[in-house]
Design a protein around this nucleic acid. Structure first.
Length: 171
DNA sequence: TTAGTGATATCC
DNA sequence: GATATCACTAAA
């Protein structure tokens, strides 16, 4: 009883989507026909220009342009020259918010996730509900979620870096 | 703890 | 054109 998540799911506040995305399944179909499913264990919400932790807070640029786009768009960001981090855009069209997929079962760390999924910049700009290589499913299982401050955004300042906008499932 | 890595933004 | 920065990982 797995259900593929559609655009409606992402067309909500990033905080809600991030919370509900924790515990869902990312499905990746490779070119050779192999399919891998990975449970999302950790997400983070990034909410708008006023959120200093969000890329869009520094202004609209070609890179952050995607954040302003339609919900369900995959935003792949290259960090430190070797790591791909994967986000999904949420909320209203024109409002820069999204959810970072921070970890999956069997690994820790956002770059491990994309590595395992074979995600790279080819996926940047794709809609996660409108392609046959990667999507997210709800298998109906429920998890206890706990929150924590986001990591890696010390530059955002006390006010923003302490927001409990990181969602982790209890396993 | 530190090196490695490359796209992006920002400063000439 | 150049350089400073960055939501990280792996190796030690």
């Amino acid at each position: 009883m797995s259900e593929k998540l559609g655009e409606d799911f992402f067309h909500r506040d990033a905080l809600i989507v991030a919370r509900e995305l924790a515990g869902k399944i990312v499905v990746r179909k490779f070119e050779n026909g192999e399919v891998s499913k990975i449970r999302i264990t950790e997400t983070e919400a990034y909410c708008g220009e006023e959120d200093k932790g969000c890329h869009a807070s520094k202004g609209r640029t070609p890179r952050t342009e995607l954040l302003y786009g339609r919900p369900g768009i995959i935003y792949v960001y290259l960090c430190y020259g070797m790591h791909w981090l994967m986000n999904v855009i949420t909320g209203e069209d024109g409002h820069p918010e999204g959810v970072l997929l921070r970890a999956g079962e069997n690994f820790n760390g956002p770059a491990r996730l994309t590595k395992a999924l074979g995600v790279d910049k080819r996926f940047n700009g794709l809609s996660i509900c409108d392609n046959d290589e990667i999507w997210i499913e709800d298998d109906g299982k429920k998890f206890d979620i706990f929150t924590a401050p986001r990591v890696g955004i010390d530059y955002a300042g006390e006010e923003w870096k302490n927001k409990p906008w990181r969602f982790i499932i209890r396993t």
